[in-house]
């Protein structure tokens, strides 16, 4: 049983096999159960078969979203058809909201940095942010819809309210964890408050802040989906909520996997970029 010990050193093949085995088991189990259900009831809509899901996904990814585009898309290339499809228009709508929300996290990072660096700013904001962080963002949803209407602003505000306190407090803690010696050293080398904040502290914490944003991407998506499901006319979550009414599991499941894949790719790209841009950063 040495392979179960702390000092076990699995080879590359073993690691590859182990890391994919749960995916394989999940897929096999799903299709086995789906097949059993369809054998008992051929009209079962809860667990679509692989053929139904392929059909549902290709309809979503290759058929035009709007009636007026049907004419234009017929006979055009696969890429052109994908760009007029329901999946692509939904992805674009959700992606735009997602990017605006992630961009709005940057001021939160700067606020956290300044709160930790400058005691007066910290004293002014910290208690309020700590309280604000405890407010359950989803409970504010009705207030946001009343205050900002049911358009884009309320959905983006929901994400901002839900995620920014965490990012502010995370950046605050990361800044506080920079050893005092580094700041003192900066002063003895002639650096000003501005240079110490941005050229010493911010540069040191930035890779960790990026990691923190990476870990919060799922929370961003969660609030985005909540907003889209309740009040929207497009977006990935809007489509999932719409298809739920028709028990469209053959499209819902591929949509859920598509969202997970997109998030996984964004996370993967951010991690790779983080280590490429900061070769000194050792944390994995």
């Amino acid at each position: 049983m040495s392979f179960l010990r702390i000092h076990a050193q699995p080879g590359r093949t073993a690691i590859w096999t182990l890391s994919w085995s749960l995916f394989a088991a999940g897929i096999v189990l799903y299709f086995y159960v789906a097949q059993q259900r369809h054998r008992e009831n051929p009209d079962d809509r809860v667990m679509p078969t692989i053929a139904q899901m392929v059909r549902g996904f290709s309809d979503a990814a290759l058929k035009p979203a709007a009636e007026e585009e049907v004419q234009a898309a017929s006979g055009s290339s696969l890429l052109a058809r994908f760009r007029t499809s329901m999946l692509w228009t939904d992805t674009l709508a959700s992606g735009r909201r997602f990017l605006i929300s992630v961009a709005l996290l940057f001021p939160a990072v700067l606020l956290g940095l300044h709160m930790a660096m400058f005691p007066v700013i910290g004293a002014f904001f910290l208690r309020f942010i700590l309280f604000f962080d405890k407010i359950v963002a989803l409970s504010l949803l009705p207030i946001l819809f009343i205050a900002f209407g049911i358009d884009e602003l309320s959905k983006i505000m929901l994400i901002v309210i839900g995620v920014t306190p965490t990012i502010i407090l995370d950046t605050f803690n990361l800044t506080k964890s920079v050893p005092r010696e580094q700041i003192v050293k900066g002063f003895t080398l002639g650096a000003s408050d501005f240079s110490i904040t941005y050229r010493i502290v911010f540069k040191q914490i930035w890779p960790r802040v990026l990691n923190s944003i990476r870990l919060n991407l799922k929370a961003v998506m969660l609030f985005l989906f909540a907003g889209e499901m309740i009040a929207s006319t497009d977006g990935l979550a809007y489509r999932i909520a719409l298809l739920r009414r028709h028990m469209g599991m053959d499209t819902i499941i591929p949509y859920v996997l598509w969202v997970a894949l997109l998030l996984f790719l964004v996370d993967f790209a951010m991690n790779k970029l983080n280590h490429k841009l900061h070769p000194w950063f050792q944390e994995r």
């Binding site: 580094q182 010493i200 950063f281």
Partner: peptide
Amino acid sequence: YVPQKYSLFPD
């Protein structure tokens, strides 16, 4: 100033 630890900027 030369402290015992954290004397250099790691980045």
